[in-house]
Amino acid sequence: MNSATTQGKAALELDGLRKSFGKTEIIRGVDLSIGDGERHAIIGPNGAGKSTLFNLITGRFPSTSGKVRLNGQDLAGLAPFQINRMGLSRSFQITNIFPKMTVFENVRCSLLWARGYKYSFWHMVSRAPDLTEAAEAILEQINLTERRDLPAGVLSYAEQRALEIGITMAGGANVIMLDEPTAGMSHSETDYIVDLIRKVTEGKTLIMVEHDMGVVFGLADRISVLVYGEIIATGRPEEVRANPKVQEAYLGAALEAEH
């Protein structure tokens, strides 16, 4: 899988991507190619621009210059919903669910477009067994079957994070982007989420921003280190760990903090 890096078919390519807010340049020319089926982690200190990079890729913000290609197709000028329809789905750093709707409804809504229901007003969702079954299968996967009929807003933090991942996965997108999936979690919760991520992203391309080095080294095929809007290193975990530039800029401090 590791060899499917730049030579293999790229799921996502960033080419000279830049973003400025006013005079401040947050993303300063990012080039990155992520292969099909690769698990890629983006790490870096706070304020490095990791979430901004996610927002540029998924169409939440327009980029100032540069290109983003998903399976070879240019995403310039596309809205988030159009990018999503092309097979890219993301989660958010701050939990972003439908708080007043039930857990089941949250998952079912995230299935609708992918299953071809679009803007239909002639189907009854309750009379679509494929929707109900698929939503229940996802609830089973994310361990929320027992919470099925509760409003999503009353779930515990870890449960909401699991639901967030479930919603992100549900549409069956091939490229999954997770923004700090384990942020603010206890050790046991983190282990649970990591297992979950490994399970549900089987065979898919995964791009994640993560602070927890244990998670990163356990999960990622390759790692990119983003510092002040630039990628200073990309490579396999052991390469990145050994890279003196990375150690200097970031990793040393983070690894020390782990102990």
């Binding site: 939440r60 919903f81 329809r85």
Partner: peptide
């Protein structure tokens, strides 16, 4: 309902 609760999330669901 979903758009009422969270329009942005709905956009990221297609």
């Amino acid at each position: 309902n979903a758009v009422r609760d969270n329009p942005e999330r709905a956009e990221f669901l297609g």
